[in-house]
Design a binder for these strands. Structure first.
Lengths: 217, 217
DNA sequence: TTGGAGCATAATGTATACAGAATCCCGGAT
DNA sequence: ATCCGGGATTCTGTATACATTATGCTCCAA
């Protein structure tokens, strides 16, 4: 099956990737004309991608003033974090039949995660993949899409955290706890642990973020 | 404070409104060029609005084949319904300080709701407003935005239900139950009732939808 | 020196132009 | 009559053009 994909989607992924990798610092302007020539396409698909990113909260946009990378804001992190905690736990509860191979795949990702010391991007990619695999059995595609879209937000904060705070890799401890709950108590208990871990991680990130904004730069 | 608003936002609201009012039947094509001339703007803002509607699930779009109004699909309704039930209950739990006037406003909306017999659109508008007022105290703006965006989906099903099933108005019974729980048990118990009412409403709508798709048209 | 008015420049939002793909229509073959 | 193929036409996706608004700089005045 061949599928043509709109340019705007490709541009979207490119730009999002660059933002997540820190190529465009917070608050910096993203000019459609510059991006267009840089990516070798016209302004139209670039603008469509930027509009989407703005709707998803990655960019700010005010009429006539273009787009800029949204500054990290503890409030935003908390707001999205609370939503994501609820949604991912919900997705876990909805995952009825869980393949036995799933636990193996999760463990394997954790294994890779532990030896990516230093590479923040690879680390975050694996973190994303871990969540994808964990929720893979959830039949609610719409929910999974929504989660994937929202996860971009904490990802940016994690990336900044790892870059600036010197923390070299994500702890796999929360993963282990969730897997244990999954193995022993099933999805419901895992969902509870999940929410609890989310709260802990949020608190840690938030603590760092507020200290960071206290002494800017 | 004067605010200029992009044309795409205005077009978005117009088109969404028309879809919700049943002006474009399910499955019908929406041609950007036709809409553009009809609305007196160019294709560009129209296409931006259509792309957004497609991302929100109101429209289908496949590369090179334009946009069409998504057919009502019981699966979609259930998927979004489950998400919305969780999110609205969450928003209710997060609403800490509740103004005393809120209950009055809710009762007043219900009052108006009971005398809109026949006008499906007014009825749905009031239903939306009821939910907005109920969740108004939730400080998580991001969550409220998400809820507002997702509510478009069940709204379409409700509109079709009211038009085709002959049910003239929404029952205000669920509202009464939720308000009672809110008054007596606070937000947490209201959230529980909320989720329960969501499940009931979903089941009813789903039942109708599946019977409807069984005998198409 | 600083603050602001006015102009030049650049960038955004919107409109239009263009190329290629999808759809439709019709004629011919089976 | 029905199914298939080819060509015309419509429409989409992308590129480019245009007009208006924001921005930045210069020069003048307080």
């Amino acid at each position: 099956m061949i599928t043509r994909v709109p340019l705007r989607d490709e541009v979207y992924r490119q730009v999002l990737d660059r933002i997540q990798r820190g190529r465009y610092p917070d608050g910096s302007r993203l000019q459609d004309t510059a991006l267009a020539s840089e990516l070798g396409v016209s302004r139209t698909p670039v603008r469509e991608a930027l509009i989407r990113l703005a709707r998803e909260g990655v960019l700010d946009s005010s009429m006539g003033r273009g787009f800029r990378v949204r500054e990290l804001d503890p409030v935003e992190l908390r707001e999205v974090g609370v939503i994501l905690g609820g949604l991912e736990a919900l997705a876990l509860r909805l995952s009825s039949g869980r393949a036995a191979s799933q636990l193996d795949r999760l463990a394997e990702i954790d294994h890779r995660l532990e030896r990516t010391r230093g590479d923040a991007d690879a680390c975050l990619d694996l973190e994303d993949e871990w969540h994808r695999v964990l929720l893979d059995a959830c039949p609610n595609r719409r929910l999974l899409d929504l989660i994937a879209s929202l996860r971009q937000v904490p990802r940016r904060y994690l990336a900044a955290y790892m870059r600036e705070a010197g923390r070299l890799s994500l702890s796999t401890l929360p993963h282990a706890r969730i897997i244990a709950a999954l193995r022993e108590g099933g999805h419901d208990s895992a969902a509870a642990v999940f929410e609890q871990q989310w709260r802990k991680g949020l608190a840690e990130l938030e603590d760092w973020t507020s200290r960071r904004s206290a002494k800017p730069r």
